[in-house]
Simulated scan of single mutants.
Amino acid sequence: MRFIADMMLGRLARWLRLYGYDTLYGVEDDDEILRIALAENRVLLTRDSGLAARARRLGVEVIALSSNSLEGQVGELKKRGLEFEELFPAHARCPKCNGPIRPVPKDDLRGRVPESVYQKYDEFYVCENCGQVYWPGRQWREMLRIGEKLRRV
């Protein structure tokens, strides 16, 4: 399932990406969101009932979320059959740009990460689109903690 999330759902969009869901986000104009959803056969995620109604009239599949919290939104998506099992890096997409993430040899990153990070870690991943580098540091551990909480929702 491929998604496009409206501007109210930025946090959810980033988490969907971390769980491997192809999720576009950042399009501000509702008409453009609808155009992309139709052209790319994406499911619209929104909390905006007016946008949801317009989308349905055009034949766009819509998941209208009611919760304002990330946990509540994930719970609603789970009820719709989405799975939140394998968190980054198994099938993840870049939380920043939605690009695919792949493992890279440590040697390929010398000079691209701080020397202290290069010395401390052996596991690295890079976004194929934007080049963002990821490693299992403090933010990674926090992400895994939140991911475990989301799995229990």
Rank of each mutant, 00 (worst) to 15 (best):
Glu40Asp: 14
Glu40Ser: 08
Asn68Arg: 14
Leu70Thr: 01
Lys78Asn: 00
Leu16Cys: 04
Leu34Asp: 01
Ile36Gly: 05
Ala5Asn: 09
Asp29Phe: 11
Glu148Trp: 05
Ile146Lys: 12
Lys120Val: 08
Tyr19His: 05
Leu38Gly: 01
Gly111Ile: 05
Arg57Phe: 09
Arg35Lys: 15
Asp29Met: 03
Tyr118Leu: 12
Asp6Asn: 08
Asn129Trp: 10
Phe124Met: 15
Glu148Asn: 10
Leu77Val: 02
Ile101His: 02
Asp107Tyr: 06
Val43Ala: 10
Leu16His: 06
Glu71Arg: 06
Tyr19Ile: 09
Gln73Tyr: 13
Gly99His: 11
Glu71Trp: 00
Val104Ala: 08
Glu28Arg: 15
Val74Met: 02
Cys97Leu: 08
Ala55Thr: 07
Gln119Glu: 15
Gly111Val: 06
Arg14Asp: 02
Glu32Pro: 00
Leu150His: 00
Glu85Pro: 00
Leu77Lys: 05
Pro95Leu: 00
Cys127Glu: 14
Val104Thr: 02
Ala39Leu: 12
Leu34Met: 08
Glu128Pro: 04
Gly26Arg: 09
Ala39Gln: 14
Val104Cys: 03
Tyr19Gln: 03
Arg17Gly: 01
Gln73Asn: 09
Val60Met: 15
Ser116His: 14
Asn98Gly: 06
Arg152Phe: 01
His91Gly: 13
Met8Phe: 11
Ala92Gly: 13
Asp31His: 07
Arg42Ser: 09
Val74Ser: 01
Leu12Gly: 11
Val153Arg: 06
Gln119Trp: 14
Cys130Phe: 01
Ala90His: 02
Val104Arg: 07
Leu58Ala: 10
Arg102Trp: 08
Gly99Thr: 10
Tyr118Gln: 13
Arg141Pro: 03
Ile4His: 01
Arg102Tyr: 12
Asp31Cys: 11
Ser66His: 06
Pro100Trp: 02
Ile33Trp: 05
Asp31Phe: 09
Leu24Trp: 06
Glu85His: 10
Cys94Asp: 04
Leu70Gly: 01
Glu85Trp: 08
Asn68Trp: 07
Cys97Met: 02
Ala37Asn: 07
Thr46Leu: 03
Gly20Glu: 07
Tyr125Arg: 07
Gln139Glu: 12
Trp140Ala: 06
Val153Ile: 12
Glu85Asp: 15
Gly131Trp: 04
Leu44Thr: 07
Glu86Leu: 08
Pro105Tyr: 02
Ala13Asp: 03
Tyr134Thr: 05
Ile36His: 08
Leu12Val: 10
Leu87Cys: 09
Glu28Thr: 14
Pro103Met: 09
Ala90Lys: 13
Ala37Gln: 01
Phe3Tyr: 11
Ser66Glu: 15
Val62Pro: 11
Glu28Val: 07
Arg47Leu: 09
Lys106Glu: 02
Tyr125Cys: 03
